[in-house]
Write a protein that binds this DNA or RNA. Structure first.
Lengths: 232, 232
DNA sequence: TAAGTTAATGTCTTAATGACACAATAAATC
DNA sequence: GATTTATTGTGTCATTAAGACATTAACTTA
């Protein structure tokens, strides 16, 4: 009766944690992919992730961060759970479950480190079809992209793809890259005002025309969500 | 090298699937709770759920459905993933991960069956504080409730708490119960029109005054999301 | 028949975004 | 140095969907 809840009576499914880390680079939406060194799918490209180490990870969010840091050397600026994917056929080792995180980072923060390793690469989302991808990761990335597009319509999270100081023009470009459609500059400006989560930096920057005002995120503010989507 | 990916080299965390099943009953938002027969937390109330059975579950969604059916005898009308909760301290057996689903059902569909079993009960969300609850399930239910409230602002999912045929007045009441605030009948009607996912039933029903038009969900339509939240 | 109740409609107001003209400011060109 | 061009930022009207609330409709009960 004491071991009525003995866990060994259950075949526990294989549990992993993966992350879809997006950035905007060279005017395109990119996702971080890792060349798999071991089976299954050795040699193919997959999402950064792996098994939980119950001795050092306090929770599965730490697993995601730890695995991302191995590849990028820094923590992403934004991290949230996307979804869990499971099934008996998605991994040749048997029934598997993967919890997928969804993350954003400014390209400038990681470019140097990524460039030094050859098993991690930014993949243009439009060129994903050409890449040999492991598991169901191509499908997962598509779903993550949809989530990102949806969130970009009502939330300020795209700012996490920008450097510390940024202009309205850069913000606009990031949003347009994510959505794949042009948006009104005026709409961005209005939301920057309304969100009250940014402050002007006492500095302007060249941009080919009139000098552009720099902004930065106020310390310790939460991301603001709006009641209404951009309709584009 | 063949067993380089032998899964036994990892201490796999304990993985379970739980569900927060909501309904609206007697003008209040209720959640289905189950009295735990076994340790840990035997005797306390917890969310319906359990371990994956890799032999009969094709994926973890099936696990959630299977466990819910054990308690309600039917499948919920709406089911989506809420989030995964994990940590080394949330279960005395060790590092644990639970994937929590979020589900809705019409009370009429399950009332008779629930009444016959004594280990499952609808708990009024306002009386949750008084109940001895297992694990971090109280916290999880609060998060699920927030998700439901948020979705009720821009989506038609509250309809899944209604019987097959329903009136605008019933729909309004369900939404108001979820949100805890009054909404404009006119707004509901406008959205019912705009969503184009309902059709009028050729029948009206008494309601104390003028007869109320009955509606039902059109076959094979998806839930409609609106671009804008109700602001209430 | 009148009063009360709930349903449905009509319509004015409000709020946030779209669209776009226009002004400001800097670089490049003549 | 004036002119053109590019980009930033502002002003303003149009559009859209929701809020507020009065009005009408249809049924019940006293």
């Amino acid at each position: 009766m004491a071991n009525h809840y003995d866990i060994t009576e259950y075949k526990n499914p294989l549990f992993t944690v993966d992350s879809v880390l997006f950035t905007v680079k060279e005017g395109a939406l990119k996702v971080l992919m890792v060349k798999r060194a071991s089976e299954p799918f050795a040699g193919r490209w997959g999402l950064p992730g792996g098994f939980v180490n119950v001795d050092i990870d306090d929770n599965v969010g730490m697993t995601a961060l730890r695995k991302l840091k191995e590849k990028t050397s820094v923590a992403p600026q934004y991290l949230e759970q996307l979804q869990t994917y499971s099934g008996v056929n998605r991994d040749p080792r048997g029934f598997s479950v993967t919890l997928v995180y969804f993350a954003l980072i400014a390209e400038a923060q990681v470019s140097t480190h990524i460039a030094t390793v050859d098993d991690a690469k930014w993949i243009d989302l439009n060129k994903l079809t050409e890449l040999p991808v492991a598991f169901d990761h191509k499908f997962i990335i598509e779903q993550a992209k949809e989530r990102l597009k949806q969130k970009a319509l009502y939330s300020m999270i795209p700012v996490y793809c920008l450097p510390e100081h940024f202009t309205v023009g850069q913000f606009k470009l990031v949003i347009e890259t994510i959505l794949g459609k042009p948006v009104q500059r005026k709409s961005i400006i209005r939301r920057i005002e309304a969100a009250d989560m940014f402050e002007k930096v006492d500095e302007k920057v060249k941009s080919g025309g009139r000098l552009a005002q720099l902004y930065k995120v106020k310390p310790d503010v939460d991301i603001v969500n709006f009641e209404r989507n951009l309709s584009v």
